[in-house]
Computed example of a mutant assay.
Amino acid sequence: MTSPWNIAIPAVAALVATLSGVVIGALLTRHAQFVQWSRASRLEAYVAFLKAYSVVYDGLGHACRHQTNPTIDWTQWNQALATLSLVSTRSVMENAIAVDNAIWSIDACIVNGDSGMGRWLEFRKELEAKRVSFVNAARRELAVEQAPLVQVVGSNRRAGMIIHNNNDNPPQASYPISDRAPRATPSKSVGDGE
């Protein structure tokens, strides 16, 4: 005759194994979904930061080249920084802060009259170096397994153009020295009213 324990022990063992599998599977799925959500959140924050950067960059560039005070709405920029502080790693945030510090320093220089095309070319080099550092930190953190970038080009003119570090062919400037060609002023003919 079979003991009730001979039936109960295998049934309980099967039940425990099944429940353990369900719990472990749920934990692994939850972890994978969290990792995916976290990566997507960081990527979204990095894109928002770079979009806000392009608005600020264009505003500073226009003000500096035309020797006027910047008229920038800082709301989008501050929101992008706040979002980064919530989701990014320390390395990415340090690079974002370096970009922010450079922007505020350049803004102060322009407001104090330190502007003009020659000065903008100097400012632009500093800003672009900080932006490349930010992009490379973000790429490392997002596990983009490619060589670090030496230049990232993207504005309203050439959005998305990227130059990779290639030791055989050093990167060349991919845009003219001035952001936009000077506009021709219409000439008045003798009979035009003033």
Rank of each mutant, 00 (worst) to 15 (best):
residue 20 S to V: 06
residue 68 T to Y: 11
residue 88 S to K: 07
residue 5 W to G: 07
residue 145 E to L: 10
residue 41 S to R: 05
residue 93 M to I: 12
residue 78 N to S: 02
residue 193 G to L: 02
residue 36 Q to N: 12
residue 61 G to C: 06
residue 20 S to C: 03
residue 140 R to P: 10
residue 15 L to I: 09
residue 110 I to Q: 00
residue 89 T to D: 05
residue 119 R to A: 11
residue 178 S to M: 04
residue 183 R to T: 07
residue 168 D to P: 09
residue 29 T to K: 13
residue 57 Y to S: 02
residue 115 S to D: 07
residue 143 A to R: 15
residue 86 L to M: 15
residue 189 S to P: 11
residue 39 R to L: 03
residue 176 P to D: 06
residue 193 G to V: 09
residue 11 A to H: 11
residue 109 C to T: 09
residue 87 V to I: 10
residue 79 Q to D: 11
residue 40 A to V: 14
residue 94 E to M: 10
residue 181 A to Y: 15
residue 8 A to C: 01
residue 102 A to F: 00
residue 9 I to V: 04
residue 139 R to D: 01
residue 106 I to V: 14
residue 102 A to I: 05
residue 127 L to I: 00
residue 145 E to W: 14
residue 15 L to Y: 13
residue 158 R to F: 06
residue 137 A to E: 04
residue 20 S to G: 02
residue 124 R to E: 06
residue 11 A to T: 13
residue 64 C to V: 01
residue 106 I to Q: 01
residue 164 H to I: 14
residue 190 V to F: 06
residue 68 T to E: 13
residue 187 S to L: 08
residue 157 R to M: 15
residue 14 A to M: 11
residue 128 E to T: 05
residue 87 V to W: 11
residue 66 H to C: 10
residue 108 A to C: 07
residue 21 G to R: 03
residue 111 V to P: 02
residue 130 K to R: 05
residue 45 A to Q: 01
residue 97 I to D: 00
residue 51 K to F: 04
residue 61 G to V: 08
residue 149 L to P: 02
residue 2 T to G: 12
residue 26 A to Q: 04
residue 28 L to M: 11
residue 97 I to L: 00
residue 104 W to P: 00
residue 149 L to R: 15
residue 170 P to A: 08
residue 149 L to S: 08
residue 36 Q to T: 10
residue 113 G to F: 09
residue 26 A to I: 04
residue 137 A to S: 03
residue 38 S to A: 15
residue 177 I to H: 10
residue 168 D to C: 10
residue 139 R to P: 03
residue 142 L to Y: 01
residue 54 S to I: 11
residue 35 V to T: 13
residue 3 S to V: 05
residue 25 G to Y: 08
residue 81 L to I: 15
residue 162 I to T: 01
residue 46 Y to S: 06
residue 7 I to H: 08
residue 63 A to G: 06
residue 46 Y to Q: 07
residue 141 E to T: 15
residue 12 V to G: 10
residue 139 R to W: 03
residue 141 E to H: 14
residue 159 A to H: 01
residue 3 S to Q: 04
residue 193 G to P: 13
residue 14 A to E: 04
residue 190 V to T: 10
residue 102 A to E: 05
residue 190 V to Q: 06
residue 189 S to K: 12
residue 53 Y to V: 00
residue 139 R to Y: 09
residue 137 A to L: 15
residue 93 M to V: 09
residue 29 T to N: 02
